[in-house]
Design a protein around this nucleic acid. Sequence first.
DNA 1: TACGCGTGGGT
DNA 2: TACCCAAGCGT
Length: 445
Amino acid sequence: MHTERNHDRYFSSELLDWYDVNKRDLPWRRSRDPYHIWVSEIMLQQTRVDTVIPYFHRFIERFPTIEALADAPEDDVLKCWEGLGYYSRARNLQSAARQITEQYGGVMPSGKEEVAGLKGVGPYTAGAIRSIAFNIPAAAVDGNVMRVLSRYFLIEDDIMKIKTRTRMEELVLTLVPEGRASDFTQALMELGALICTPKSPKCLVCPVMEHCAGRLEGKEESLPVKTKAKPPRPEHRLAAIVEGTGVHEGKILIRKRPASGLLAGMWELPHIEVTSGASAVSTKGATEQSGLSAVSTKGGTVASDTASVHSKAVAERSEVTTVPSETVMVPSNVAVPSEKAAVIRLTDGLLAEGVPVRPIGHYMDAEHTFSHIQWKMSVYRCVWQEEPESLSGLQAAESAAAYEAGETNDFRWIDAGDMERYAFPNVFIRILSSYFSKMDGAGSR
DNA sequence: TACGCGTGGGT
DNA sequence: TACCCAAGCGT
């Protein structure tokens, strides 16, 4: 029975002894500066230690203090976060730094309410900061801890449920040894990271294997119980590498994304969504799509611009449309318009967003998977067309409507050297790097 | 509550 | 290869 005090003391004391000998030398363990602990905890959310280490060094060097972070331009903070993902973490981190500067004189508070009230600091991070940096007995229950506890105490509740986490927080508080909150929090996570791993846990070298109920029941591999995540939904997009002319000769056009939502505040290539499922919501869109699909299916040759397809997810999406079944019973790649249709859609779509271009050829395809969306992007080289034939009052109205809908109106012309001045999501870094390296090679001959 | 929100490594 | 994930938070 897990509530027996002697087993609890055994667990905590064996765990701490193990940690004292086996803990890794990590950059944020070299001090107890609450700022360092805080930054590391935010970076480590859903992110591996090996990935975080170089980012942590760069971030602390660039923003040495909470006040330095508070005073920096947001674009600088995002640039420092570029490639790390979940960019709201960076924007919330800076927002909280400004909070601390204004409300607490630039000093990280240690009170429960104060810490938990910081932007981007939830129950886990609040507990981590208070226990690790201030040695306060506080629970920091993350995925590691839930895995360790679910196995040791044979807790079979779904760890995706908030109730399970709060229950484990209560359990942790009963386990914290007097005066060693900081080490205990880190030891719990360290055991999860090094020994009590998700797959093939190293029970034979585990310091607490003797009384681990999960292992004794032979359930160490099937714990913790966790509901599966949904597969990402596919989205087809057409992107433009817009080459400038005149004073913008040799440069290409980028734009800033809206201040909220996916990749908020990051820079990108102008692009439009052309997912068939999205347009099929309206009858008009479905009709247009079925026309395109028929071309592909009748010939029996379904053009495939991208390699892999989440066919299961695609099938689910297709069922909600009202398009005739013989039209939708084809793989998702029919959603990719023919090259000719794509050129028209890209021209019209970007014009409606205030970007007049003339596509001059397909450049490359790029696939990028987020946690919840899979972008299948087709990239076209385009030239900026100052005065498109069809530019009219209607176009101006559509452009205004797009802006109202949250589209950004912040555009820049950049060259290869400007890459280091703007923060891009990975998928655009890949495309831009490819483009600029090819242009450099061509230009140097 | 459930979903939106990135990325790269492991198997 | 095609998943599965890894030190969560905001809404």
